[in-house]
């Protein structure tokens, strides 16, 4: 690396830290940036800086936002008695895309993962329980992923919320659209059977 100019080496190293970007891609991107017009590069740099400066966590739902409370929490049209708990901010996007949910959200920012030492204290669980204190929420929908960590997190939340007497539901689990029974794993197929609906 000694033969490469320091600013180039530095940017390659920084880009390389991003998920899915290996050393080769980092190098390609760096040289691409080098040949881009000044204005575009400045605008990209500015976008990256303001990402950290202007974005914060919503004080109500812990989603990432540039307005606090976030637009969803501020929206009077939405049903604030239905609260959907998700692992990450990015999980809200597909749920919103379905157009089927008119309630509000709560973002945990992760899942309980004992082997990595991530417990409820590392997640926005305290904030969730605080929101549930004033009896304004009638139903909590646990929309954590159907992975082992997602299940552990959902079970933990169920035990914590249960004493509050709030209705708790969990996203139905089953076969993904366009999938093939033959290839479904036993767990998924079993859950799809258990969660079958009147047709």
């Amino acid at each position: 690396m000694a033969s490469i100019a320091e600013p180039i080496a530095r940017l390659i190293a920084e880009l390389n830290k991003l998920p899915g970007i290996g050393p080769k891609s980092a190098q390609r991107l760096t040289y691409h940036l080098l040949h881009m017009p000044d204005e575009e590069v400045k605008s990209l740099a500015e976008a990256i800086r303001s990402l950290k400066e202007k974005v914060e966590l919503c004080s109500v739902c812990c989603n990432i936002t540039d307005r606090n409370p976030c637009p969803i929490c501020q929206d009077e049209q939405r049903d604030h008695s239905k609260l959907c708990v998700v692992e990450r901010p990015s999980d809200i996007i597909p749920l919103e895309r379905t157009g089927k949910f008119k309630g509000v959200y709560h973002v945990l920012h992760g899942t309980i993962s004992p082997a990595q030492g991530i417990g409820p204290q590392e997640l926005k669980v305290k904030e969730l329980l605080y929101r549930l204190q004033d009896n304004s929420v009638a139903e909590v929908i646990l929309a954590t992923n159907p992975t082992i960590e997602g299940e552990a997190t959902a079970m933990y939340l169920r035990q914590m919320i249960h004493p509050l007497g709030i209705h708790i539901s969990r996203l139905a689990r089953g076969l993904p659209f366009g999938s093939d029974l033959e290839y479904a794993d036993d767990m998924t197929l079993g859950q799809a059977l258990e969660g079958r609906q009147e047709f």
Binding site: P114, I148, E151, A152, M155, Q159, D185, D186, M187, G190
Partner: peptide, 24 residues
């Protein structure tokens, strides 16, 4: 091909935690 997914553990927080501990 799954032989056993230990479904009983997936509905019981405490026993799932014990199982994750043995894996760890």
């Amino acid at each position: 091909q799954t032989i056993d997914a230990f479904p009983a553990l997936r509905n019981d927080l405490w026993h799932m935690a014990c199982a994750l501990y043995t894996l760890d």
